[in-house]
């Protein structure tokens, strides 16, 4: 699936190395009232890896992300974050775990009534003892890291979609989180901005040692950044493949995964899409 100009991601999958688990999901069942969206979902995310949650539209990728980020409780199963059972912890522990996570939403989710600098400063004011001067300096640094130096006084409505995502990422990185989650980072971006964002994700992962979890169905991104992945099957409603996306492309464990990773449609897909 190499396209022109696409660098092959040759970093060694951390799943093959002996590193502790950042996230462990065991026997997860996700339901909306009586409707079971996913069942028996189990996987591990190793520290410092870029983990992709992929699957077709409607397979429950974003819902799974909501469970990992503490926005939706699972019907059954366990989510261990840094070894702590998130959904069975009290709210104080949950809040502590959440403060160590950063999230970049599909739209950037910047607070429209605040400038970019104020957006990034908010988690710092909330969770750190830094003085205002130190916070200002940190905000400058985070903006510079995502290539938005000098845009601190801009409001979200004054910048482009790609810049909003970068600013959202700067906010997600404000507290030097251990895990950063990305919800469809490439959605709505042109190919160049999308590629730049992918590069930024790799840079953050390699230089800050941050564990990255990305929900996406963009093949370019999956092969560029992913070191490990799971595939959610919307018909079987569970994980049907796990591993490095390139390995899955070379040896797809089932037809669904092969069709997904090679961007082809089988008869089933034609009739169900």
């Amino acid at each position: 699936m190499n396209t022109a100009g696409q660098k092959e991601n040759k970093r060694q999958p951390l799943s093959e190395q002996k590193t502790p688990d950042a996230i462990q999901v065991k026997g997860l069942t996700v339901a909306y009232d009586d409707f079971i969206l996913m069942k028996d979902v189990s996987f591990e995310v190793k520290e410092k890896e870029i983990f992709i949650i992929m699957g077709a539209s409607g397979s429950g990728k974003s819902t799974l992300l909501k469970i990992l980020t503490g926005l939706k409780a699972p019907a059954k199963g366990t989510v261990l974050i840094g070894g702590i059972d998130f959904w069975r912890s009290n709210s104080k522990v949950q809040k502590n775990i959440m403060s160590k996570n950063g999230i970049l939403y599909q739209s950037g989710a910047l607070f429209s009534s605040m400038t970019l600098a104020e957006n990034i400063a908010l988690p710092l004011q909330q969770y750190s003892d830094f003085s205002q001067k130190e916070i200002d300096e940190l905000v400058h640094l985070k903006l510079a890291l995502v290539g938005l130096e000098g845009f601190g006084d801009f409001y979200p409505s004054e910048i482009s979609g790609g810049m909003k995502k970068r600013a959202g990422l700067a906010r997600a990185l404000a507290l030097d989180p251990k895990i950063v989650y990305f919800d469809e980072p490439s959605a709505g971006l042109d190919p160049i901005s999308s590629r730049l964002l992918d590069d930024l994700i790799i840079q953050i992962n390699q230089n800050l040692g941050t564990t990255i979890v990305v929900v996406t169905h963009e093949l370019e991104s999956i092969f560029t950044i992913g070191t490990n992945s799971i595939f959610l099957d919307e018909e079987l409603r569970t994980v049907t493949a796990q591993g490095n996306p390139r390995d899955l492309l070379r040896n797809p464990p089932n037809e669904k995964v092969r069709h997904f990773l090679t961007r082809t449609a089988g008869e089933n897909e034609k009739n169900s899409k």
């Binding site: 980020t69 503490g70 926005l71 809040k95 959440m98 996570n101 939403y105 989710a109 429209s112 908010l122």
Partner: peptide
């Protein structure tokens, strides 16, 4: 509108 733009989700996940 903040809910639609996921700003409320962002607040929740920041623990605010």
């Amino acid at each position: 509108t903040m809910q639609v733009n996921e700003e409320v989700d962002a607040l929740k996940t920041m623990g605010i």
